[in-house]
Design a protein around this nucleic acid. Structure first.
Length: 625
DNA sequence: CCCCCCCC
């Protein structure tokens, strides 16, 4: 059993920056109230990300009831690794005291190592909050204490929030509202903090950061105000900042993308992860006390951008609705589509296709970004920072949101390399080869319908969607497997017959005289263990019916109906290997599973042998157990 | 205090 670092919490209370990595025991874990986010519109997984755990940590002598776990470590609690009586080593943590009436010393837990778990509480610790701070503590180094600890008063609550070097100029009091950059001492002499260490409980900090991106000032309707956003980066992290109202006029012109600034006296608050695409729990709001001063030295340790590009073929493994950085070549630019959403809202969108060495993916642009996208960007390099990962019928797509940073031909070495690769090799590669390269259908579990039925019993386990492979027979087909679709490129919306030779597309909000036939049908698939209705769309239906959708007999004549019947009958009895995606849909206030065929393979004897042998292997393991 | 990010 690990020994606890007795006295560590007292040393922490006296000097939060001792750099110690104490071994402590968890006495209790509790879920705190969620942060203010619009709860109703959140999905379960989003909600999970905003939950915070409060821990009581003990060093055997004292315990501190106000320890907050960073949300990145929530999984340790939810998956049961971190429990009551766990013994942990605090690897990275922060003192971030809460001010005001409920003044409180907060220990922010940023990184831990779980060492062990005990069966009981070790020692007989008393609360640090009621302990006498002046008791002797031999391990506290006197040097750091002298510099960083102004004075020990009778209450630990009155300690300064962050260590401040007393020799340096003190910032003006927060009450002043007429501060300008000229009438104060330069803030660049302040002790510098890194973005990584900023949190809402510190009130005195100065950071030195580069402006990575800035939005124009825009107005918003509900609230009738205006705002701008910018993104700051330093060596450690990134943070989004917002200025409202008068702060726009004062600060927006000062901040220029690429320049470095000292910033102090802005509010740090919890980021609403639903909208903030940044890898930071917090965000910054400027106020009338915020001071921004240009740093004229080019600090080369601060990068120009913080980017982590995901190769396109790996996007399939990324959770939908998460935000990533992607770089690729613009391969095609579709026409703009004007449509109406389900909420009866007009939208404008444009799809483009981008390519890198590993694969290609569709990127959807919206509104002004869609309208302004230049056709000349074809074959240019496009960089997307904070682009949203979406799922459409099992295929991943990307959606460029207003907060996404989009740059054409960025001056980055990776962009130059990509362009060089494209000119020398990429443009000669057959796109179909690339699609195959993405090997997205490997390692898909093979199931029978008796196993598929288990999805119904455990719906909530399907986070986004799952794919399985099944050998099955087409048993029954719904009539009318084709529908009249909007001919506008990429629209495919089912048209309403006006019965006057014209058709109405609710998506385009226009009447058309023409239509195209597209497949959309349900087929009852079965094997020896069960059955399931599965939706089939264009590509997969064409394989089964053996003709393109526009050739499917559609007329009302006896001849056409006979031919259609023949077609329907022709697929009954066909046995194939189907790739099926199962997705959880919320429909009319209840959950149901939706099965869609996303691929058809002929039954290959070698593949079947391999699958059977794998199953036999698994069964013999079970028998031997 | 924003936070719209929509479509098949």
């Amino acid at each position: 059993m690990q020994k606890l670092t007795t006295g560590a919490l007292m040393r922490f209370a006296k000097n939060s920056s001792s750099g110690e990595q104490p071994i402590l025991q968890v006495l209790n874990i509790k879920l705190m109230d969620s942060k203010p986010v619009s709860e109703s519109s959140m999905t379960a997984s989003q909600h999970k990300k905003t939950q915070r755990y409060r821990l009581i940590l003990s060093d055997g002598k004292h315990f501190l009831p106000s320890c907050v776990l960073t949300v990145q470590l929530n999984d340790l609690v939810t998956n049961g690794q971190l429990q009551e009586y766990s013994i942990i080593r605090l690897d990275r943590y922060l003192r971030s005291d809460l001010k005001g009436q409920t003044a409180k010393m907060i220990l922010q837990i940023l990184q831990i190592t779980i060492l062990d778990i005990a069966t009981h509480r070790i020692g007989n610790p008393i609360s640090l909050l009621t302990a006498d701070l002046n008791e002797d503590n031999t391990l506290t180094t006197s040097t750091t204490k002298d510099v960083l600890q102004p004075k020990v008063t009778n209450s630990i609550f009155k300690h300064p929030i962050a260590p401040i070097n007393k020799e340096l100029p003190v910032l003006p009091p927060p009450s002043s509202s007429t501060i300008t950059i000229t009438n104060i001492d330069s803030i660049k002499n302040n002790r510098l903090f890194k973005i990584e260490t900023l949190n809402p409980f510190q009130n005195r900090w100065t950071i030195r950061v580069r402006v990575a991106n800035k939005t124009p000032i825009r107005t918003y309707l509900n609230g009738d105000g205006r705002l701008f956003n910018c993104n700051f980066i330093d060596e450690t992290s990134e943070i989004r900042a917002t200025g409202f109202g008068d702060d726009c006029d004062r600060l927006e012109p000062i901040l220029i993308v690429g320049n470095i600034y000292y910033i102090t006296q802005a509010q740090i608050k919890y980021a609403n992860k639903q909208f903030n695409t940044f890898n930071n729990d917090f965000e910054m709001t400027f106020n009338n006390e915020t001071i921004i001063e240009r740093c004229l030295d080019n600090i080369s340790s601060i990068p120009m951008q913080r980017l982590h590009f995901i190769p396109i073929n790996q996007i399939q493994n990324i959770e939908t609705n998460s935000f990533i950085d992607v770089i690729g070549i613009v391969m095609s630019i579709n026409d703009i589509i004007h449509g109406k959403s389900k909420q009866n809202k007009d939208y404008t969108k444009r799809d483009i296709l981008i390519l890198d060495r590993t694969g290609q993916i569709t990127v959807t642009l919206w509104y002004r970004i869609a309208e302004n996208f230049q056709s000349s960007t074809i074959r240019a390099v496009i960089m997307l920072k904070g682009v949203c990962v979406k799922d459409f019928n099992g295929e991943r797509t990307l959606s460029v949101l207003a907060s996404t940073q989009l740059q054409i031909d960025p001056d980055l070495s990776i962009a130059h390399e990509l362009r060089k690769w494209y000119l020398e090799e990429g443009m000669n590669i057959d796109m179909i080869d690339l699609t195959i390269q993405s090997n997205k259908h490997e390692n898909i579990p093979w199931k029978t319908f008796s196993q598929v039925a288990e999805y119904e019993l455990n719906m909530s386990s399907i986070v986004n969607s799952e794919i399985f492979r099944i050998k099955a027979v087409c048993t029954f087909v719904r009539h009318d497997p084709v529908y009249k679709a909007c001919t506008r490129f990429d629209c495919k919306k089912k048209l309403q017959d006006n019965n006057d030779g014209t058709y109405y597309c609710s998506k385009c909000d226009l009447n058309y005289e023409d239509f195209k036939l597209l497949y959309m049908t349900s087929i009852l698939l079965s094997d020896s263990t069960g059955y399931q209705w599965v939706s089939f769309f264009e590509k997969e239906s064409e394989i089964l019916f053996g003709c393109p959708s526009e050739q499917f007999p559609y007329g009302k004549s006896k001849d056409d109906e006979d031919k259609a019947y023949q077609k329907l009958m022709s697929i009954c009895g066909q046995e194939k290997m189907f790739l099926i995606r199962v997705k959880l849909n919320h429909y009319n206030n209840h959950d149901r599973l939706q099965f869609t065929c996303v691929g058809i393979e002929s039954i290959d004897a070698r593949l079947m042998c391999r699958l059977y042998l794998e199953d036999i292997g698994r069964m013999s393991c079970i028998l031997l157990d």
